[in-house]
Design a protein around this nucleic acid. Sequence first.
RNA 1: GGUGACGUGGCCGAGUGGCUAGGCAAGGGUCUGCAAAACCCUCUACGACGGUUCGAAUCCGUCCGUCACCUCCA
Length: 501
Amino acid sequence: MESDFKIYNTLSREVEPIQTLKKGHLTFYSCGPTVYSYAHIGNFRSFVTADLILRTARKMGWQVTYATNITDVGHLTEDDFSDPSGEDRMAKALRSKEGEQFSNVWDLARFYSGKLIEDWHILNLVEPTIRPRATEHIREQIAAVQSLIDKGHAYETSQGVYFSVTSFPSYGQLSGNTLENELEQTVRDVVVDSEKKDPRDFALWKKDDKHLMQWYSPWGWGFPGWHIECSAMAMAYLGDQIDLHAGGEDLIFPHHECEIAQSESLTGKPFAKYWVHTRFLQVEGEKMSKSLGNFFTVRDLVAPPGEGGKGIDPLAVRMTLLSGHYRKPFNFTIKTLKGNVKHRERLAEIVTAVGYPSDDSRTYDGDLGSALKSIFDRALEAMKDDLNTPTALAALFGGTKMIQAKLATLSQTEITATRSWLADMNDLLGVVHVNNNVLASNVKPDEDLNNAVEALLIERQQARMDKNWGKADEIREALTALGVEVMDTAQGAKWKKIGGL
RNA sequence: GGUGACGUGGCCGAGUGGCUAGGCAAGGGUCUGCAAAACCCUCUACGACGGUUCGAAUCCGUCCGUCACCUCCA
């Protein structure tokens, strides 16, 4: 049924109201990363988009079935069989310096997929309904390849099995790289397997009995092509047809284009109705890359300074990712991050003052309550309008200001309304409070620091009572050196850790 | 060369025919032993040029610029 949840569909190049196949039930699939290293904030920008679709749909009262995969098979450059080393990214990672700690690619994949899930929770991403792994679905992939051969959409060569692009006339609909495009063909002639019927045909299975990860198939030992894994897993868990499919913009072509071709050739039915793509993020105005030194993983930002991180509040990182619209180029900067650390401090202060509700009851009594309720409604409307996170955040900030102005004098009714609002906003945006308790060490309180700070504050309090301002300022400087900022309030001295920025 | 997206104030970023989004930074103020935090005030922009219109940042056209993809990529 048609809803007022609108999303930009890459397939139609229009913002469309989402019409789910089953009333009130959204099924969607989001492409996950290859786990050959730590996921970076760019990866997470895409995952956050999927997370927001899920949160918005749930807040509208929809049921959601959400699958996102872990690619734990290394894939070669699709058609490049000329590489004598036969290396893929996972094999390369194993040979790198970081890879020395792993005995084989399987261990490496296990390690990094564990880290992916940790970071997932640190950034307060909702756990998917199912998180399938490519290596656990080889059987389904082989069956899909066999079926494509049987239906005349694929063929075998001495090197592998290929999907025949010309057997799927609407190939290119998603990316615009259509079959009629002659010029394109000359570009892609660079890498050619002489046995391929068409240079555009892509691999479904690669024959390779030397590969570090290999399985037995009707075509001998080898491993599956990259695109078939997502088709096979999406269909295994969500059915032949799904509502929505998401991923990074780089996946439009070839990955998603090929998924459509395979899936629809298998079932004869439209695969996904809505295709949602997240723009790449840049860091400090440049493409994120290790050589430029602007490459950030989640732990680079949130781990404590002693463990190689910057000690930043993970939800400030999440808020930063939300500050730009998913479909626009986004420039991730330390400056923006700093601003969001501040926003988070304000929110955290409110949460500390009123408490975070543990149940689902939401009441918005009183003037403040109705004001907050309408702010939440505005945020939800913004999210339903193609995930307009900047507008939703603007609403969040407006409410935060409103509460903060009267934080010291809130009535019980107002406290209840505030708690309801925080919980509702958090359900929608996930930047108020971390719901899961799989938190990493970076949020554990530092007992030694706490004791040292408390001792100094008592000393300073005495100095202030003696009007010994010189000594009081000295102690404040000592605290600053410890990375602590002091604030004198009517209720006594408060302190907070200064972020490592 | 092909395909697609984007261009808003000092900065980040919504809006999409008339009605100042919001934030950050900056400046001023209240508060404070001094600060910090908080609060109040100030800061009116839409790449260029044409066109449509009573009226355009918004619609149309042309141009310029930036970014991404074109078989590793979120």
